[in-house]
Design a protein around this nucleic acid. Structure first.
Length: 370
DNA sequence: CACACGTGGAC
DNA sequence: TGTCCAAGTGT
């Protein structure tokens, strides 16, 4: 009987747990910008931004985003360019393209009202099981589970659940636990309290158990296993890709930029022309050939690369050798190829890797004027 | 299911 | 320096 994952729900004082948890949250919750009211749109935006992203990182983005797109209509009617620009540097850019698309759908299908049923809200792009539960509970006070990494860590300790939380199927175990534990009187605070506890007290390493408001309910604390829970298998290492990039200026001082494909890594963001390194041909020759093929550009490339950028993604790393050069003839501008002045560059959304390139290039210009 | 998908901070 | 992240979702 003791080897089923949720067996500790049997002897669990649910009401006392809810009171201790929610009471603590009411006293200790952080003052965060998305907690000023429970407007479903604001809750939605904040939840998307917070996916795999730290609170401290999100705060300034959330403030700027709400200033720029205060309502669902404002976001729905905005250009994707400006939406991506508002997300620049936050990462996981498909989040905001999905949000933009879903907001348009809410405007057209539901008259701008975020739906309040699990079935309808889950149909929106970018709204998975966690986000659906978070919006439904926080904005609409529905008793739905919102199981994220915090909740799995906290509950794995409290209920001594030894399932591997890296396995997708295991989330359902924790949803079942939350359905058993959630306060129907205040599901919003219950869900948020579980996450807040994970963020402030029940942290991945060295949790502050002596400050924990639900210590008395915690099996891992009692058994001294907080250091072993949750069980989480680690993922495989990342692969390496070597790139060659060029910052090319024409005789008017304009820079050649290129829009990335609409799918895959950094989709629809802008970049400086780049190509994967060839094992045989020299970087400079490879780049010149690529620019000639791709943009019909006749270029003069400086002899040595002026900087080398190492950029680490979640699943791969780039090493980019960056060359400076000049465009000799004309380049045809299209939807995905543009020549822009340095000032105009700030209107386009670039990945951080390419922002690093541009800063290095500007530093170079300062060293060697004209 | 396993993997793609960003970034900056902590230890 | 390397490893693991931090309020996950789409395919």
């Amino acid at each position: 009987m003791s080897n089923t994952p949720l067996n500790h729900l049997q002897d669990f004082n649910i009401t006392a747990f809810q009171n201790d948890l929610i009471g603590w949250f009411s006293r200790e919750q952080r003052d965060l910008p998305w907690r000023k009211d429970k407007d479903a749109y604001k809750v939605w935006v904040s939840e998307i931004m917070l996916q795999q992203t730290r609170v401290d990182t999100v705060i300034p983005y959330f403030e700027r985003f709400m200033e720029k797109f205060p309502t669902i209509d404002d976001l729905a009617l905005a250009d994707e360019e400006s939406v991506l620009k508002a997300w620049e540097g936050l990462g996981y850019y498909s989040r905001v393209r999905n949000l933009h698309s879903a907001v348009k759908e809410v405007r057209e299908l539901y008259g701008g009202m975020v739906p309040d049923s699990p079935a309808e809200i889950s149909r929106l792009k970018g709204v998975g099981p966690y986000t659906a539960g978070a919006i439904l509970s926080i904005a609409y006070s529905k008793a739905e589970p919102a199981v994220d990494g915090n909740v799995m860590r906290v509950l794995s300790r409290i209920l001594s659940i030894w399932e591997d939380i890296a396995k997708p199927s295991v989330r359902k175990v924790f949803e079942e636990a939350v359905r058993a534990l959630i306060s129907h009187e205040n599901p919003s605070h219950f869900n948020q309290a579980l996450m807040e506890l994970g963020a402030l007290i029940c942290t991945p390493t060295s949790p502050s158990c002596l400050l924990c408001p639900v210590r008395e309910h915690c099996h891992a604390f009692e058994e001294g296993t907080t250091g072993e829970l949750p069980v989480k298998t680690r993922k495989k290492s990342t692969r390496h890709v070597d790139l060659i990039a060029g910052v090319l200026k024409n005789d008017e001082g304009k820079i050649l930029i290129h829009k990335r494909p609409q799918n895959g890594l950094l989709a629809n963001l802008w970049e400086f022309p780049n190509v994967e390194k060839n094992t045989i041909i020299s970087p400079r020759t490879t780049l010149k050939g690529y620019l000639s093929d791709e943009y019909k550009a006749d270029t003069k490339i400086e002899t040595g690369s002026f900087t080398s950028i190492d950029h680490v993604f979640s699943h791969l790393t780039w090493n980019i050798e960056v060359f400076a050069g000049t465009l000799q003839g004309d380049v045809e501008e299209t939807d995905t190829v543009k020549l822009v002045t340095p000032d105009e560059l700030t209107e386009y959304a670039f990945p951080v890797s390419h922002q690093k390139m541009w800063r290095a290039y500007q530093a170079l210009q300062l060293e060697m004027p004209s």
